[in-house]
Nucleic acid binder design. Structure first.
Length: 269
DNA sequence: ATCTACTCCTGATTGC
DNA sequence: TGCAATCAGGAGTAGA
């Protein structure tokens, strides 16, 4: 499922659309997490895409005073195909049609979303977001101060998009393993050293994943094959019952906040 | 103010 | 073999 690196890869994959004029928009299936308001989309036709960028897990299209805000949800994918192609896949929701190519948003589970807004920074999905993990403001001081009084588990805190964005279930598990911290540990017991480890490993694993995504970019957006999302080497996620690569103890699966957590009880305390 | 449980959805996997 | 039950998970929202 798309976390920050996959979204970043998607943004890079469609960067060639910057500068192109949207000739037409087609909404095939309006039903997403929030139903698409087709009338809002009419305002986008004939506008130029000035830039495309990522904020948290959102892909934002700057279209001359209007902004399109897209979230891939869990199963959303973007693909670019020639405008003249008649290809239509199951779960294709929306097409942005340009002169030579068209961009298609496909989302089987419909957890994704698309909004149009005039004021991107005041948009309800954007305005309360926390800091970017790859930004230098995400550091030991910031994290320690933010969570030092919290009774919530460290895992739920680093997945909390109001604190730091872009970290989903997979990377939360991996970051805490690399940091050697038990995911159940409460925020108020997290030490400065812990906070330092978490920020350091968050950055390194996200960067690594973005680089891995870069190498698969071509296949990622080929019209024919949807290769799905790449994964970096995982130490704990989805490895229940398998041996820890560090100590050979068996990886455990527990549940936290209705989500699977994987950990090595020997390495993480 | 903080935190947790619930909810949306469909494809893949598991179980009988 | 086939059908049904189960699971997966991002993140807003409601309610504790």
């Amino acid at each position: 499922m798309p976390e920050l690196p996959e979204v970043e890869t998607s943004v890079r994959g469609i960067s060639s659309l910057s500068g192109e004029k949207i000739q037409q928009i087609k909404v095939h299936i309006p039903k997403l997490r929030w139903p698409i308001k087709e009338n809002d989309f009419l305002d986008l036709e004939d506008r130029k895409i000035v830039s495309i960028y990522r904020r948290a897990k959102y892909i934002i299209f700057n279209c001359e005073e209007k902004f399109l805000v897209l979230h891939l949800g869990m199963t959303g994918t973007l693909r670019i195909i020639p405008t003249k192609s008649n290809e239509y896949k199951k779960h294709d929701h929306v097409e942005l049609i340009f002169k030579k190519n068209k961009l298609i948003f496909n989302d089987p589970r419909r957890f994704g979303s698309i909004h149009i807004t005039n004021n991107i920074n005041e948009h309800f999905l954007i305005k309360n977001l926390g800091v970017e993990p790859l930004d230098e403001v995400f550091n030991e001081d910031y994290l320690y101060t933010k969570i030092k009084k919290s009774n919530a588990s460290i895992k739920s805190l680093i997945m909390n998009q109001k604190i730091v964005v872009g970290i989903g279930n997979i990377y939360a598990n991996e970051v805490l393993f690399l940091s050697r911290i038990n995911p159940r540990k409460k925020g108020k017991y997290i030490t400065r050293k812990n906070a330092s480890e978490i920020t350091k490993h968050s950055k390194s694993i996200l960067r690594k994943a973005i680089n891995a995504g870069g190498t698969t970019l071509q296949d990622f957006f080929s019209p024919s094959g949807n290769k799905g999302y790449f994964k970096v080497d995982l130490n704990v996620y989805d490895r229940e019952g398998e041996k820890c690569f560090d100590c050979s103890n068996l990886i455990k699966r527990i549940e936290q906040n209705q989500r699977s957590t994987f950990l090595c009880r020997n390495c993480q305390s």
